[in-house]
Design a protein around this nucleic acid. Structure first.
Lengths: 115, 115
DNA sequence: GGAAAGCGTAACCTATTAGTTACGCTTTTC
DNA sequence: GAAAAGCGTAACTAATAGGTTACGCTTTCC
């Protein structure tokens, strides 16, 4: 996931998709690189779950899947101080975790390990 | 910046520094890889502004610079659904829990669900 | 002053990544 | 049914990333 966002082309693709779904060709023609190159970027985005493909005829429409972003946002929230909804995330974190733990009482006691 | 957090070792270093400053050696001994390898990760983090080094005697203390995180957080905010607390909670629960668990186990080997 | 501690850098090797061209498979169009 | 449109995949190449060992520079310690 974090690796998927590391590439500038992929980040740009995500921004493009923010306005709605686009066919693979429509995405590709907005970049200087070859179409297969874009196609593989799309595959990376697909495999990391950031994007979903929808087959319509011979076209492949790509659209954002916002869910995985939340994970990174939550991770990032550790480092960002109080502002916006990230703060809410941070505040919720403890609560949510506690609830979870209580719910699944007594399983999986993963221990620390300094590899 | 985005490239800096793409690497799991570097992400882990950032998490370590969340609790306060650490000398280069203290950081390095928490990883299985060689000290020079960690040293170069630290350089990447330094050059991307996520971390700052402070020379004390023959030691180099590293500490977080939280400011650059805000930029990525802002970029990321574009993609997170702005509506629906319920949705947030539901979607976040798993992620937040996962983050917590990673924080405790210190390893982080997940993060690839490859649809 | 010399040994050792603490870190960074250099040189080198390998695995991964991002790009290219060539090609093949469906679906539409005429 | 043949041509063309739309996309993905394969094979290959060049660049980059991340790891290792060897080494050099300061600072502390005796």
């Amino acid at each position: 996931m974090a690796g998927a966002i590391a590439d500038p082309v992929r980040r740009q693709i995500l921004v493009l998709l923010k306005d709605g779904r686009l066919a693979a060709g429509e995405i590709a023609e907005r970049f200087a690189i070859s179409r297969p190159a874009v196609s593989r970027h799309l595959r990376v985005l697909r495999e990391s779950g950031l994007v979903r493909a929808e087959l319509v005829g011979r076209q492949r429409f790509y659209s954002l899947d916002p869910e995985p972003f939340t994970g990174l946002a939550a991770w990032l929230a550790q480092f960002v101080r109080p502002s916006g909804w990230e703060h809410h995330l941070d505040a919720l974190e403890t609560e949510v975790y506690r609830t979870r733990r209580e719910r699944r009482s007594g399983a999986e006691s993963r221990e620390e390990h300094t590899a």
